[in-house]
């Protein structure tokens, strides 16, 4: 790609062609995702600032240590969240496959991969719903923090406030991503894209879905690992 751009540098911006070589909607999706990245970035930086400004902080391994169908005193940190992470990665992979199938105009493959992606998104949302419910029953919510700091001192509500706000905002993104994918599936099944002659809409939905996966990489690291 770079060879063609360096070979004709003046011609690229001289009009008559698309200098970015992507269609309008895709470029706008990129710009939207950039603004969304700044929103999430602002949230996570606010979390980091508060954490740096506070004496003591809860140990994530003491907070996120349970999983469904386990007893009250189960101690399995990182296990459940790693499952959630892999679910999201795999659903991202099936989304790529759907996009590629769309480029090959292979309707059946698009449908199968979209369904798998939607299932992955729904599975992730279910995991998150379980985790929120579990934490709520432990007494955690906005403005309430039952967990002690790692050094045994009383902790502030900063931890739970940021956790529920940021994972909630991410979960809302996953939810809207699932809705978008369902719309894409309906449009594929009703042959909308076949009539248009291209599956470019799937690529835009794919960009959004990958972005959701990308944000989870950061949220997962910031809240569960570090």
């Amino acid at each position: 790609m770079s060879t063609t751009t360096t070979a004709v540098p003046e011609k690229l911006w001289s009009g008559g062609k698309s200098p970015f070589k992507v269609e309008y909607g895709k470029l706008m999706m990129w710009y939207f995702l950039m603004s969304d990245a700044f929103t999430f970035g602002a949230f996570l930086i606010a979390y980091g600032t508060t954490r740096f400004a506070t004496n003591g902080w809860p140990n994530p391994n003491e907070v996120f240590k349970s999983y469904p169908f386990a007893g009250e005193n189960s101690h399995a940190p990182l296990v459940f969240v790693s499952i959630m992470t892999f679910i999201l990665i795999i659903s991202s992979v099936t989304m790529v496959l759907a996009v590629q199938a769309g480029q090959q105009m292979n309707k059946n493959k698009v449908v199968i991969n979209l369904i798998l992606t939607i299932l992955g998104g729904a599975a992730f949302l279910s995991c998150q719903a379980w985790e929120w419910t579990h934490l709520f029953h432990e007494g955690a919510w906005w403005g309430r923090n039952p967990f002690m700091n790692a050094d045994g001192t009383q902790s502030t509500t900063g931890f739970t406030n940021f956790f529920f706000t940021i994972t909630g905002f991410h979960g809302f993104h996953v939810f809207s991503g699932v809705i978008i994918n369902i719309v894409m599936l309906i449009m594929t099944l009703t042959d909308k894209f076949e009539k248009r002659g291209h599956y470019l809409m799937i690529e835009k939905a794919g960009l959004y879905w990958h972005f959701v996966d990308l944000v989870w990489v950061f949220v997962f690291t910031c809240f569960y690992l570090i």
Partner: peptide, 21 residues
């Protein structure tokens, strides 16, 4: 993040101008 954006979101295969933007 680099692998997701570069390969899944396809940015690595786009025009250099877009990558920079």
């Amino acid at each position: 993040a680099f692998y997701i954006v570069g390969y899944f979101m396809h940015l690595k295969h786009e025009v250099k101008n877009l990558i920079m933007t």
